[in-house]
Amino acid sequence: MTEEDHQDSLSTETETSSAVPDGEIMYEVPVSRSRGQTVLHPNRDQYVETIEKLSQDGFKVCIDVTAVDYLENPERDIPCSISPERFEVVINLLSHSKKERLRLRIQVPESDPVIDSIFDYYPGSEALEREVYDLFGIKFEGHPDLTRILLPENWHGHPLRKDYDVGSIPVQFKEAPGAG
């Protein structure tokens, strides 16, 4: 099935079922385009179903799982049916047969930073999800071994959150103010 076919077959369905999504629909979820790249915006609760569909549709490889903290920059271009939250989990999928990439952006609220793991569909997401957990504090439900991966286990905080300080110290100079 090509991309167009999907849009044709799915758009008729969604027009009747859901509440006025803007623009395109693929795999029953709203779509946006960023610099020509296709981005799906599934709901946090149902995104695993989307993943399942995608994995059956040739997107055999999960290339990347990461997250973005939109604390300082709440505006972003997402379809208006999706309400922006502080965190966004970004999943990159690749289809070798179609030579295509797809990106999923899933909104995760700050109050409840939990999302389902996609380990059962893509075992390769294990380390990637651990990294997101480590650096952003987003928990993945159903992950077999959700522990810190990059930082020591007794580390406090999640450094890639925007409210986490960079932690830089002043550079040593001889005549700069404060230099000894």
């Binding site: 930082l151 450094p159 986490y164 300080d165 960079v166 932690g167 830089s168 110290i169 550079v171 040593q172």
Partner: peptide
């Protein structure tokens, strides 16, 4: 020697 350009939380400065 000093953390170099990575003046951040992760490295020993």
């Amino acid at each position: 020697s000093s953390g170099g350009m990575f003046n951040n939380y992760a490295l020993v400065q």
